[in-house]
């Protein structure tokens, strides 16, 4: 019963949040000067007043802002996201065709970071203030501090240009490789460098978070009790210390998961990955409002859903959460 109430309350809140985001986004992007007609004219090196007026009229940009907002919200409520000003294709199609590429990249980076980061953090905590700890801490700091685009370029330089092991950009080979195995490995091979680039940053964060939380927990009384009752060390670390240290990891994983849709712009740019972050960035520069709003909407929905999942996970990991209410 309590869970049902929780679910209902969540659904109402989620709908209100998404609608607010739609309205806010609509208003915010109109603060930027210039519109799609100016941009298209600017790119062509030729402008014509008739062309400008026709473009604006075609997309209703000549109407008052309030009227445009009402039309837009009405359309969104009927799940009609409109067409792109630039390509004249339905934006829902454009977003959906880019979504898998982004989810593949951010998902791979997410899994990679969640597997490697906490493991390194645990290792560092167990070996606290010894060489292994120092090495992990320094590396984590390095990858945390280095700009993502720079890590990406260095990886391309080393693994593609110098060693020639991995493709430097794109999602698949233009000419499909010969042989079933090679063909199956084509996309994964393209995925390695961008995943590393995006993932290493999160690995660093998880490693630092885990190490800190582990060390903090290790000094607590219940851990001493566990040791005192003679539990083997792996159970002390695994079942007691790490379970407690998991809470900040789950919280942060929730945050990272919120970025699954829109959080890979830089990696997508460096590796020419055909994803949605890049689509949004270009749409912003080109004032392709419909397309940009659609990406924002997709991203907002993803964040709301993932927050919900995070809440659930936290309840499972720590029964105290939610029980106290």
């Amino acid at each position: 019963m309590r869970f049902l109430t929780f679910l209902l309350a969540w659904a109402v809140k989620a709908a209100a949040i998404v609608l607010t985001i739609v309205v806010l986004n609509f208003c915010l992007i109109r603060l930027a000067p210039g519109d799609v007609a100016t941009v298209l004219a600017g790119e062509s090196g030729a402008a014509d007043p008739e062309f400008l007026a026709r473009t604006r009229a075609e997309f209703g940009l000549d109407k008052p802002l309030a009227a445009q907002l009402l039309t837009y919200v009405g359309n969104v409520l009927t799940l009609d996201l409109g067409v792109s000003y630039r390509t004249r294709r339905p934006v829902a199609d454009m977003v959906l065709e880019r979504l898998p590429a982004t989810l593949m990249l951010t998902g791979a980076a997410f899994v990679f970071a969640l597997l490697v980061g906490p493991a390194l953090g645990v290792l560092a905590a167990i070996r606290a203030r010894r060489p292994a700890d120092t090495a992990i801490t320094v590396l984590a700091l390095l990858f945390y501090a280095m700009p993502i685009f720079w890590v990406g370029l260095i990886l391309i330089l080393v693994f593609s240009v110098t060693l020639g092991w991995l493709p430097p950009f794109g999602m698949r080979s233009i000419i499909p490789p010969v042989g079933d195995v090679a063909r199956a490995l084509d996309v994964p091979r393209h995925l390695v460098l961008p995943t590393l680039t995006l993932g290493l940053f999160y690995v660093a964060i998880y490693a630092r978070l885990t190490r800190g939380a582990m060390l903090e927990t290790a000094g607590l009384d219940f851990v001493k009790t566990a040791r005192a009752k003679g539990l083997p060390e792996w159970r002390v670390v695994g079942a007691h210390v790490f379970r407690c240290a998991m809470l900040p990891i789950i919280t942060f994983a929730g945050l990272q998961a919120g970025h699954l849709v829109g959080g890979a712009i830089v990696a997508e740019t460096v590796f020419a990955w055909p994803g949605i972050g890049r689509l949004a960035f270009d749409a912003l520069l080109q004032r392709d409002y419909n397309l940009l709003l659609a990406v924002f909407l997709a991203s907002a929905v993803a964040v709301v859903l993932i927050n919900f999942a995070t809440d659930l996970l936290l309840r499972i990991a720590d029964p105290r959460i939610g029980a106290g209410r």
Partner: peptide
């Protein structure tokens, strides 16, 4: 002929350099 979209200019330079 393939026209390939590479958004980052440093990546484009590397693509030329590596013969891609």
């Amino acid at each position: 002929i393939y026209y390939r979209f590479i958004p980052d200019s440093a990546s484009r330079a590397l693509a030329l350099e590596s013969g891609q």
